[in-house]
C-alpha cells in the first residue's frame, strides 16, 4: 500500500482557478509539468541555479523548482502559457522573435516570464539593470547579446 498521502491544492494559474492533488514533496515545477501538463516552464537544474523554470507567484518571480506544489495553495501563479493572449503574442515574445533572441529555446520561457515582470515594474531599464535582473536566468546559446537587445526593443514597444 502506498504511503504517499496526496494533498489537495486550490490555486489560480494564469487567471483560472485550478485544483490538483500532489505529494507534499513535489515541487511546483513538477506539479505544473507532470500533473497539469503546463510544460512551458523547464527543468534545467532543479536547484535554483538556471531559471528555466521561472514563474510568477503572487507578483514575484520564483524558480518553481524551489517552491513546493502545496505552497501554491491560495496563490496567484502566472506561467509562460499565460503570456500570449487570444489577440496574439505579447510584445516581449514578438521582440524575442524579431531579435533572434533564442537559439535552442529551452531557457526562453524563463527569460520571457522574468522580462515581463521587470518591464511591468520598470518600463525603461538600463542595460545594466536588465543584465542584473536576468542574471538568475542562464542561457548557454546566445551570449545574452540578442536577449538584452530584445528586452530593450520590447520596453520601447510597450511604451517604456
Amino acid at each position: 500500500m502506498t504511503t504517499n498521502t496526496k494533498t489537495h491544492v486550490t490555486t489560480t494559474i494564469n487567471g483560472e482557478s485550478v485544483e490538483f492533488l500532489c505529494e507534499p514533496r513535489q515541487s511546483l515545477l513538477e506539479c505544473l509539468r507532470d500533473i497539469l501538463n503546463l510544460t512551458g516552464a523547464k527543468e534545467g537544474c532543479n536547484d535554483g541555479n538556471c531559471g528555466a523554470c521561472t514563474v510568477e507567484l503572487d507578483g514575484r518571480i520564483v524558480d518553481s523548482c524551489l517552491v513546493f506544489g502545496v505552497e501554491a495553495q491560495g496563490k496567484q501563479i502566472n506561467t509562460i502559457e499565460g503570456v500570449a493572449t487570444p489577440q496574439g503574442l505579447h510584445p516581449i515574445q514578438q521582440a524575442f522573435l524579431e531579435n533572434a533572441a533564442l537559439q535552442c529555446g529551452i531557457c526562453t520561457p524563463g527569460f520571457i516570464v522574468a522580462t515581463k515582470s521587470l518591464l511591468e515594474n520598470e518600463p525603461n531599464p538600463s542595460e545594466t539593470r536588465i543584465r542584473t535582473w536576468l542574471a538568475g536566468n542562464l542561457c548557454r546559446c546566445t551570449g545574452y547579446d540578442k536577449i538584452v537587445k530584445a528586452v530593450v526593443a520590447a520596453a520601447k514597444q510597450m511604451g517604456g
Binding site: G40, K42, E43, F96, G105
Partner: peptide, 13 residues
C-alpha cells in the same frame, strides 16, 4: 519561433 516563445514547443521532457 512562436512555439518556442509561448512554451508550446515540445522538448523530450
Amino acid at each position: 519561433g512562436a512555439d518556442k516563445v509561448t512554451g508550446r514547443a515540445k522538448y523530450a521532457g
